[in-house]
Structures are given as structure tokens and as C-alpha cells.
Amino acid sequence: MKRIKRWRRLTSNMRAGRLKSNLFAWMLLLPSLLFLLLFTFYPIFLTLRLSLFQADLSSPEPTFVGLGNYRTMFGDEVFRKVMSNNVWFALGTVPAGIALALLMAVFANKALRGKGFMRAAFFYPTLIPMIAAANIWLFIYTPEYGLMSRVFSWFGGSGINWLGTPGLVMWAMILMVVWKEAGYFMIFYLAGLQNISKELYEAAHVDGVSRFTVFRKITFPLLMPTTLFVSIVALTNAFKLVDHLMIMTKGGPNNASNLLLYYIYETAFSFWDQGMASALTVVMIAVLLLIAAVQFFGLDKRIHYN
């Protein structure tokens, strides 16, 4: 009897304690939660709601149309084009950007002389605003006297209009974005490399393991958390980066370089079709949530954290 009483007291104490510590945790989270609610969830809710309305120049007052905007969207040729463009853009920039970042990080980590210089050189594209970078690359891609055309003219192929040809413009964009982003990802890899214990390398060295095997069996697996993080950032960036389109192509020629976010911008601020722009934004949020979900529930479990 006595024992049961004691046990009861104990559990109730524990419960109160947990409540207290939970309350404390909630208090700590409150400020950021408040911001999240105010600037993230509330706007998401408003966007979701507006996406069910026809709110464009022909309707002075928004009228409820249910899923009408979504139906129109899936029938819209340009929407299908920007979605497939975005997939290609992601496929082009993410693996290449990550591979280059890893390569640069390993290189910058190893370099004996000029380490600082090397890192600065690799990192500097990240420091330039995208708008400035886009202007530089606009010049690089200029037919005839742009840098790219000059290089190609040594091999006899001159006069390529990189930005003005539907089949080339996406490659031109991908190349620029890889250049722009790799340095940023390199920083994460550099940090990751510093975290790998030197003893592992010494042990491998003693065993006479080849460099490539060391990379394959030690460096690369232990960098997996970094790779995961970087790939998520790269993937979301593939949907977020559009500043360059404004400067370089305006999504052209004939939508060959148009991306979802730029199309949302066009729909909202050039067509003034807010209902449709909201519907497109909902699709965008869904895509990004999907990417995040794959990370949380899929890949995360398979990664070895040291």
C-alpha cells in the first residue's frame, strides 16, 4: 500500500516536472514559432485560399472557382514546360554542383601552398550577387565577342548564340549556376573534411591503401551527412534561383529557359492573375515539401553520422 502511494507520488511529480520542462521548451520556441506562424503558415493559408479564387484583371472582386485554377494550370502548355525545365535544371545543377564542390574542397584542403588564395578563388562567385553574376555571364555568352564565343572560335565553332537558341540556353544557365553555387557548397565540404578524424587516414596509410580507395571508403562515406545537407540546399535552390532569368533571357526564347518561380512572378506581376499565381505557388510549396519529406523520412535514416 505504502509502496503504491509512493509510486503514485513519484509519477505525479514526474508528470508535473515534465509539464514544467515542456512549458519551458515551448516558451523558448515561442518567438520563432510566432514568426513562423505570422510570416510562414498564415501566408501559406492565405495563398491556399486565394488559389481557389479567380482573382485577375477581368474580375474586380475575387470569385470562388474551386479547383478551376488548377484545372487551367494543368492544361497550360507553359506550366508543363516550366515544370519540365525545372526538373532538367535540377538534374543539371545538383549533381554537377555537388561533385565540383567536393572536388574543390578536397583540392583546397590538400593544397600546401596558397591554401587561403585557393579557397578565396573558389568561394568568390558566391559572394557576388546573382544579378551581377548574370550581367557578367550575359557578356560571356554574347555571340561573336563574348568570352565563350572566343574560346569556341579557337576550335572553329564561332557565332553560337548561347542564350538565343532554345536547345542551348538551358545548358548555358546550368553552367552558370554550377559556377555560382559550387563555391558555397565547398565551404560545407571543407567543414566536413575537417571533422573526419586524422587517425583513420593514418591507419589507412599504414595499411598501404590506395588514395582512391581511401576516398571511396573513408572520405566519401563520412561526408554523407554533408552531402545530404548540400543536396537538399542545391535541390531547393534549383527551384529558388531565378534572378538570372530577369537579366539574361526573361525565360525565353519561347520559354526554353523559363522556371516555375519566374513563371509565378510573371503570372502575379505581369499578368496580374493572383488566383493563378497562388495556385502555382501552392504547387511550388508542395514540391519543396516533397523534397524535405524525402530527406526526413527517406535518406536521413541511411546515413552514418559520426
Binding site: I232, L261, M284, I285, L288, A292
Partner: peptide
Amino acid sequence: MRKWNAMGLTATLGLSLLTGC
């Protein structure tokens, strides 16, 4: 921490659009 990062990314991005204006 990583998770919050990813969440933050997703969240901020979608919304900068219509409300931003």
C-alpha cells in the same frame, strides 16, 4: 538543427512571393 534548416528553407521560399509584395 538540420531539419529546422530544411524546414526554414521550404517555408521562407514559398511565401516570399505573394505576401512579399
